[in-house]
Write a protein that binds this DNA or RNA. Structure first.
Lengths: 159, 159
DNA sequence: TTTCATGTAACTCAAAATATTACATGATGT
DNA sequence: ACATCATGTAATATTTTGAGTTACATGAAA
């Protein structure tokens, strides 16, 4: 199956949006995903309805965050996207007559339902600010790496 | 994405096979799924390699279980199928340069990895004999229902 | 009133699971 | 031997669904 990438995509986009601190157009945001602005609008439509972002038409318009990142959970975003399918596994028949198939489906159902519960709970526990904080860490680490390689280059120059 | 139904399908099939207690052809098994015998062979190929079933060619040939149901876990079957993808969610880029996207992926990764671990653990804890036992329960319940509706019919006849 | 931006429907494209076709291999029964 | 039955598997077609594209409507700002 082709995977659904909306969640990962829109998170990427709105974290950039939040960093930017002013309205950004669908076209600009589309550059981050190397995709078409319409794809951005389609995904953002759900977030707008959920009150996570605001859109403004016309000159100087575009998208802005409606809430601080700390007030938005991964679960909020997931649900705003329309709660796309989590699992790639399905049943051949949803409501089979065959009692064996019923027993099989019940068994799988229970396993997947439990996993889904846990996953959504985790989504609920993670705020976008947590991800932004992780980005900050990575950024500081990145700066250190640059510094270090600059120092190393300087050193090898002197040798 | 079109869901992957191999796990549910093959479980259905091999439970019928186990019930039957003698070799069954791919053609017969295909009837349970209303599909093509080749589809059965393709899925069963993995189970054969894993030593869960045995196939015999020619007259009177077909498929038989190689182990008792109690000795086969859901995990065994899942892995014998080639461990098909569990989640429908993916990342736009596997190894992104963008630090924001890296942070997003790391966050999702952790959530999905945890869910996968739990799911496989559950698969490991369920044996096919558990599912067969559940089928038996459903079957007994079904018989009771038939009896009851027969009694009701008899009763309404007398009225 | 022109330009910029979103809102959305309709259509096309692409990827992946499943189904089908075709033919090879091997075992059994006559 | 050889006809028949059954699996083994490659190649191809079909189907589903996420993503991309085109087209046009709506509304706000210069």
């Amino acid at each position: 199956m082709k995977t659904d990438n909306k969640l990962s995509s829109i998170l990427h986009v709105i974290l950039h949006l939040a960093e930017h601190n002013q309205a950004m157009t669908s076209e600009t945001l589309a550059l981050y995903l190397k995709t078409n602005p319409v794809v951005i609008r389609r995904m953002m439509a759900g977030l707008r309805q959920a009150g996570l972002v605001v859109s403004v038409k016309g000159h100087g318009g575009g998208w802005t965050m409606a809430k601080p990142l700390a007030a938005i959970s991964l679960l909020d975003v997931y649900q705003a996207l329309g709660a796309p399918r989590l699992f790639a596994q399905g049943y051949r028949q949803e409501a089979p007559q065959c009692l064996i198939e019923q027993a099989v489906n019940a068994s799988l159902d229970s396993a997947f339902a439990e996993a889904e519960r846990q996953l959504l709970q985790k989504f609920n526990a993670v705020n976008l600010s947590d991800i932004a904080a992780d980005f900050e860490l990575r950024y500081q680490q990145h700066l250190l790496t640059l510094e270090h390689s600059a120092a190393t280059a300087q050193q090898s120059k002197q040798e």
